[in-house]
Design a protein around this nucleic acid. Structure first.
Lengths: 260, 260
DNA sequence: CGCCGTCTTGAGTCGCTTCAAGGGTAGTGG
DNA sequence: CCACTACCCTTGAAGCGACTCAAGACGGCG
């Protein structure tokens, strides 16, 4: 009855940009307020290490804005990005003492963090949260295996085309919201060429050549190094070698084509 | 008090070769007997399709003996194996109507099958089962990402070496049980060169050349096409480029190095 | 303006694939 | 028992996709 009786009307969650879609929506109101109490918002500069590979893992949470990369480095310096985390993805690994992969900020990021032990207690205390977590991890597993398919048996050109189509799909809705006329075929690459190479299992030079070739063939139009328009969707899909990535093929058969 | 009062002393589960280690051990006795009632043992010949890609998925279950491959084929025929399932691994995808990947028998197999809807009800009815499932899927995700690292930034020789070391590790315990003197360094490849190639993201020819080269260098000794002895573990680990795969490096930092 | 990091472009090289052929082994049927 | 087929594995030779190395162009920032 009094102003402020509704916790959610003023806490940090009230202004959260991902609150409609994040993990926490699967909890009911009083669990959400408990989560709000436990969480803290942190920001990191591009390049910062959130969790180091093989080290203790005090936090888990959600990406609120920006992009995280999940990666592993082998002793001679080669490294592979095994996942990109975009809002509202979760980061961190519950129920393991050490982080098997490094988590770093690919851009400036805002994160909603929970102490890992407290978050695990939440999962244990609330079935519906643990169930939602299971569904999330299952989809991540499907996505990881999709990516293995690309790394294992597709050419670099196919991987680049797939990546752009997946990015477009992932951001399509936000493009619509922005209500930009030509946005239907607009793609923003939120990461550097270096990270693209590490994600696609190739080198920056090859990435660059591939993109330039696609532009020269008028399959894409390059606005700047990170912004493109997909001019010829049909040929783009053909280049990706994956018919199921056709932009019109909506809705998805499952969420497995997220850009994880 | 009377003979036969213990359900588990005579049912099919009593003779199950994987009952000490399988998923079902996390359930208590009366849940196990319910699972026993729901399950049925089926066998398939090598090459048989258990679940087709993108089709309805009526069953899930455990591998009792033999090897399953989880794979995806793209339209032009290229295919990638994204997981190998060995006893006592689970196969199938809960909480999804369609199987995103094909599941086929890589060898003759024996499977313990559950109708998927019934199995999902079990998970929902018994927290501890769903929790165990979450842990299992998290480890599979870690393993899939490990594999992405190999596919994305290691050479074929490194992948083959890693694969053999992982296989050895996975079967080390069963070797010990068999009490064979030289078994400590013994490796059996349970699949064909063709499947190895599809798993390692290369071709049969390259697999063959790589193995022959390793044998010529006296890193391994070839007993027959599927049986090897690791003669020089140290060089083997060095070839794999992954120090953490050293056989002596026991116990594992986590279960993430299973041959999934 | 000059520095620096990122992206692009070129030339040479190499790892792996492709194509082609030969050998080994198991299963089949005469 | 052997011929015959079929499949798997091995080996060789040639070609190509991608990497490496090197240098230049672009853009942001002090």
């Amino acid at each position: 009855m009094t102003i402020g009786s509704n916790v959610e009307s003023q806490g940090k969650c009230a202004q959260c940009g991902i609150r409609q879609s994040a993990f926490c929506t699967s909890a009911d109101a009083h669990v959400r307020s408990e989560m709000e109490r436990l969480s803290h918002i942190r920001t990191f500069k591009a390049g910062a290490t959130i969790l180091a590979e093989g080290e203790d893992m005090p936090i888990v949470g959600n990406v609120v804005s920006g992009v995280l990369r999940v990666q592993k480095t082998i002793s001679d310096g080669r490294q592979q990005i095994v996942g990109l985390l975009l809002p509202p993805d979760m980061f961190g690994r519950v129920f393991a003492p050490l982080s098997p992969f490094a988590i770093e900020a690919a851009t400036d990021v805002t994160l909603c963090c929970f102490p890992r032990p407290a978050f695990e207690k939440l999962l244990t205390a609330h079935r519906e949260l643990e169930h939602r977590m299971l569904l999330t991890v299952l989809e991540e597993l499907d996505a990881a295996r999709e990516w293995m398919l690309m790394l294992g048996c597709q050419t670099v050109a196919e991987r680049v085309a797939s990546f752009l189509l997946i990015l477009h799909r992932r951001f399509k809705d936000s493009c619509r919201e922005a209500d930009i006329g030509w946005a239907r075929m607009y793609v923003e690459i939120p990461i550097s060429r270096r990270d693209m190479a590490a994600y696609l299992g190739t080198t920056v030079e090859t990435i660059s050549r591939t993109i330039q070739t696609m532009a020269r063939k008028n399959v894409i139009r390059m606005l700047d190094t990170r912004h493109f328009e997909i001019v010829d969707e049909k040929r783009m899909v053909k280049m990706s070698g994956r018919e199921e990535l056709a932009i019109s093929a909506d809705p998805l058969p499952s969420a497995m084509y997220g850009a994880h």
